[in-house]
Design a protein around this nucleic acid. Structure first.
Length: 727
DNA sequence: ATGGACAATGTTTTT
DNA sequence: CATTGTCCAT
């Protein structure tokens, strides 16, 4: 009876994957082919039909959001039987394992996770310790090299040295790792690296987890790196029950060490692998799939998949050439408002995608100007804010006093007279005593009882002892108080509100952000501070996506992976941006750019808009640019093109020039009669007299661009605007 | 020690 | 142009 429910509504290929005999299984899933469905039903099938206990199942996803979604869907299928699944991102699962196994490892179970800023300052510290110049040795570049090495499972001693530069990197890497341990901290890559090493070096640990996780399932397998692949292999080493889902065409994290060839590697390492292809697309219309295929088929060396859909032809994708990025933004706004007003579409149906985060600015400003709400995907937006980082520094320091990065941030906040000199003294004395600065501070907080009082002069001592006392109090309270109360206590003790909320609008915003963090903390009643800190450190951009708000979504193409929207608009499709200029000289990188474009296109269910500017402002000054080379690969008949807008608001065309422009209509099926032509003069009740620049039929309405003498350029829907034609 | 003013310098994508 | 670092006056 269960089996009917679990396999209901699956197509032949999906069924094959879900009900496959246990063992190594590779599911090659095209976009929109229902891979999440296959994964959830597979889990349900294992529990419901095979009698596997949920406790023995491990499922790895790319984002926490995907994990939660999967959990809910399994719950819907199985009810309480689903309790006890291990479901999460690689990073979160590894953190959990490492805390549990800390006694076998060179760090403490209450380690903190360093974010990218922390990692960078740690590289700077390391450079400083080695008397290396930051100017000649870019911390960013060195950190990238260290990160790559870790993802390849290379420890400092294994780091290949061929040039002097490598030699420097190797030394910094080595020092960097020492510093991490001294801070009782791990970086993102460490979470994977240490877990992989643990499973590699300690057979007992390997066996323990391989026995526990009898069934391993992995989503987005094409984006696993060496460390992730290695730890999966160890987990599956006893039973080979590993079910992976992926699509080489959607591999977009090469720069993070991901290697889609892990799919080939998988088939080699597990020779009995059953391969299942999911080719039916349930998401997009044929018109959209055709565009996607045209783009991706240009990539050499790929296994061609025959994607097909039964959703019907659908509307042609629209190609729009804007004059510059500002006009791109107004086209987006105009299109969204027109379609929501006249076509019954919801604002939440729209997603605007771009290659780089910087591109969101112009869009955001346009939305703000038009008074339209929007949401932006990106964790950095919130967690990167100064006030948020401040509070987290206090909490992290309380949780792990050895966290020197947080200590340095928090110790003089708000300014209490502890500057670089004092901190240096503290560090020196701590070093002498064999303590971390935080531990020394805790001791000084004991007042008369502290052994180390004598090491400091009066003023310095009283300043340090005062903060030490605060820290000691918080440190004791953290086990008694909830995260929320602890946070309130800290905020009160240091007078943070008075410091940050200075009466200006910005100050108020900052305090509002602190309150938002407080709201987040309130959801952690009854859970340890470490959980709160860990979740915050590991939030992904997609996790911040609020699916409830009915407003357009702005996001990078990378962040769009795994999502879908009725209408997708991709902007900034110019050479240099997509493909990005930094990929030009590397064929592999260029192919990844193409895949990125493909990922963006295949997010669309019903409609697709491809937009590019003729000019792009770099460093404030506009520069001419070429349409993306990828656009050339899309056959013209797949696109309906909206011609360039050569009219600028500040230099209107003369009537005869405007009349001579040949505009093409964006829509083929015309149900309303076109009443206006370029060059006509019209009268509008509020905007006054103007001249028609362009008119087209779109979505059962006539859309006209009019230049008004007083009000400038307006785009109006004829059905709504009361226009009178003047002679 | 602190805060303001100026210069330099840098732009992919993210857990 | 917008953030980040550095220098200088208080």
């Amino acid at each position: 009876m269960r089996s009917v429910e679990i396999t209901k509504g699956l197509n032949r290929q999906q069924l094959q994957a879900v009900t496959a005999e246990s063992g190594p299984i590779l599911v090659l899933a095209g976009p929109g082919s229902g891979k999440t469905r296959v994964l959830t039903h597979r889990i349900a099938y294992l529990i419901g039909m095979y009698g596997v206990r949920s406790y023995h199942i491990l499922a790895v996803t790319f984002t926490n959001k995907a994990a939660r979604e999967m959990e809910n869907r399994v719950q819907d299928l199985l009810g309480e039987q689903a309790q006890g699944l291990t479901l999460g991102t690689f990073h979160a699962i590894c953190a959990r394992i490492l805390r549990r196994e800390a006694e076998h490892l060179p760090f403490d179970s209450n380690f903190v996770i360093f974010d990218s800023d922390d990692q960078l300052s740690l590289v700077r510290h390391a450079l400083d310790d080695l008397n290396l110049d930051e100017k000649r040795n870019r911390p960013q570049a060195i950190h990238a090299a260290i990160s790559n090495a870790k993802n390849e499972l290379l420890l400092p001693d294994d780091f290949p040295v061929q040039t002097y530069r490598d030699e420097v990197t190797r030394r910094v890497y080595s020092r960097y790792q020492q510093l991490l341990l001294a801070n009782n901290a791990l970086d993102f890559d460490d979470l994977l690296l240490w877990t992989a090493l643990l499973l590699e070096d300690q057979p007992s640990a390997r066996e323990k987890y391989a026995r526990r996780y009898q069934q391993v399932l992995v989503d987005e397998f094409q984006d696993t790196n060496m460390a992730q692949y290695s730890l999966l292999k160890h987990l599956a080493s006893f039973h080979s029950n590993i079910f992976v889902v992926g699509d080489t065409d959607q591999s977009i994290y090469r720069w993070r060490g991901a290697d889609y060839r892990n799919i080939t590697r998988f088939e080699e390492d597990f020779p009995t692998t059953q391969v299942v292809l999911l080719e039916q697309n349930y998401r997009s219309t044929q018109a959209i799939l055709d565009v996607a295929m045209a783009v991706i088929d240009r990539n050499p060396y790929r296994v061609r998949k025959r994607l097909f859909t039964e959703r019907g032809a659908g509307q042609k994708a629209v190609l729009y050439e804007a004059e510059d990025d500002l006009h791109e933004a107004s086209f987006i706004i105009d299109t969204i408002s027109t379609l929501t007003r006249n076509n019954g579409l919801q604002p939440g149906n729209f997603a605007v995608m771009y290659r780089t985060n910087a591109q969101s600015r112009v869009l955001e400003e346009a939305f703000l100007r038009a008074n339209l709400p929007y949401k932006l995907v990106g964790a950095q937006r919130f967690y990167g804010r100064r006030e948020i980082k401040d509070i987290i520094a206090f909490l992290r320091l309380t949780h792990n006093p050895s966290d020197e990065i947080s200590l340095i941030r928090a110790i003089n906040l708000p300014p209490r007279g502890i500057g670089d000199k004092t901190i240096l003294q503290l560090r020196t004395q701590a070093g002498k005593a064999g303590l971390s600065p935080g531990e020394m501070l805790l001791d000084l907080g004991r007042g008369e009882d502290s052994r180390y009082r004598v090491a400091f002069s009066g003023r310095v001592l009283s300043l340090l002892a005062h903060f030490g006392r605060l820290l000691a109090t918080w440190h004791v309270m953290k086990s008694e108080l909830s995260t929320l109360l602890l946070m309130d206590r800290i905020l009160g003790d240091v007078g943070y509100r008075d410091y940050i909320d200075d009466g200006t609008e910005e100050g108020n915003d900052r305090w509002e952000n602190v309150m938002e963090l407080r709201r987040l903390a309130s959801q952690y009643q009854g859970r340890a501070l470490s959980e709160f800190l860990e979740d915050i450190a590991l939030v992904s951009d997609q996790d911040t996506l609020d699916t409830n708000a009915n407003v357009p979504t702005l996001l990078t193409l990378h962040a769009a992976k795994g999502l879908e929207f009725p209408i997708v608009m991709i902007v900034g499709l110019v050479d240099g941006l997509l493909p990005h200029i930094r990929s030009f000289d590397e064929p592999e990188a260029m192919q990844e750019e193409r895949r990125l474009f493909y990922v963006g296109i295949t997010r669309a269910k019903d409609r697709l808009y491809l937009v590019y500017p003729q000019n792009r402002s770099t460093f404030g000054h506009p520069e001419a640019c070429d349409p993306s080379r990828f656009l050339e690969d899309i056959p013209a008949q797949l696109l309906s093109e909206v011609r360039p807008k050569v009219i600028r608001r500040d230099s209107p065309l003369k009537a005869d020039q405007a009349a001579s422009l040949n505009w093409r209509t964006a829509s083929a099926s015309q149900t309303v009669q076109q009443r206006f032509r370029a060059g006509m003069r019209v009268q509008h009740p509020t905007f006054g007299e103007g001249i028609i620049l362009n008119s087209r039929i779109q979505d059962d309405d006539e859309i006209v661009d009019i230049f008004f003498e007083d009000a400038g350029l307006k785009k109006l829907a004829v059905a709504l605007a009361r226009l009178n034609i003047l002679p």
